[in-house]
Simulated assay, not measured.
Amino acid sequence: MAQAKFPFYEQLAFDFYRTTVLDSFPVKKKITVFKYILDVHPNYFFTAPNYVGSLNHKTDAKFVLLKTYAESQYDFDSPMAELNTDSVNKKQFRVKEKRRNYYPKLLITLPFTEESSPERIFININEEHSETLIIFYSLEFDANGKVVNWCRTEHQIYIEY
């Protein structure tokens, strides 16, 4: 059985973020982005998109990991193992080889699909400003890797002592 060919979703998400999202929601400080995909993925799970008033999004949708895609990234010789950061604006981004607690930092989830609509691909871009402030950008891709919808959700975590 031949392995399915996928677009490099994390790269597409990163390129969309730096060329489109930052125009609408600029960040005042340099954003740290990690070069290697295993460092780019967050330690927490995917968040369902919050398309306010969208008719094409079901609130009870179940999302599943695009497993064959995720497994392909464990091959370090894969063309999907490292983000291409050659053309980033050095005034906007700080590119790091290894994951550390730099803020703000950018993390990108693995791709997920809606269980009832596997042709729709979803990725979260997590813009972490601190341990308590995370801004989620949910991107929806078509099967060819084109962004067809996106939204922004801000999460403030309050810690009581």
Rank of each mutant, 00 (worst) to 15 (best):
T153R: 15
Y69K: 09
Q11V: 00
N84A: 07
P111V: 04
F6S: 07
E140L: 02
S117Q: 15
Q73D: 11
K5Q: 10
V33A: 04
K62D: 05
D75P: 06
V147Q: 08
K28A: 15
S72V: 06
E140Q: 15
F63W: 11
T47M: 11
F45N: 14
D60I: 06
D86Q: 14
F93A: 02
P79W: 05
F136I: 08
S72Y: 03
V21H: 09
F76L: 14
K67Q: 14
V52E: 12
K58P: 01
F93N: 04
Q11Y: 02
V88Q: 04
H57C: 06
S130Q: 05
S87C: 01
A4E: 12
I159A: 04
K62N: 11
T153K: 15
Y102H: 12
T153V: 12
G145N: 11
E128D: 07
N101S: 05
F6Q: 02
E140V: 03
N43K: 13
K5E: 09
P79G: 06
V88L: 03
D86Y: 11
K146Q: 08
P49R: 12
A81K: 10
T153P: 00
R94M: 03
S138I: 02
Q73K: 15
I37T: 09
E131A: 06
Y103A: 03
N101G: 01
D77F: 07
K91H: 09
F16V: 02
T20E: 14
Q73P: 01
N101F: 10
L66H: 11
R100E: 03
Q156H: 11
E160D: 01
V88N: 03
I37N: 07
I125T: 13
A143V: 06
D39K: 05
A13H: 12
K28Y: 12
V148S: 13
N126F: 04
Q92H: 12
V52Q: 10
V33R: 11
L110H: 11
L65M: 12
F45I: 07
K30S: 06
D23V: 11
L107A: 01
L106P: 04
I159E: 03
E71G: 00
N124S: 04
S78G: 04
K105S: 10
V21I: 15
F25R: 10
S54D: 13
N43T: 14
R152G: 01
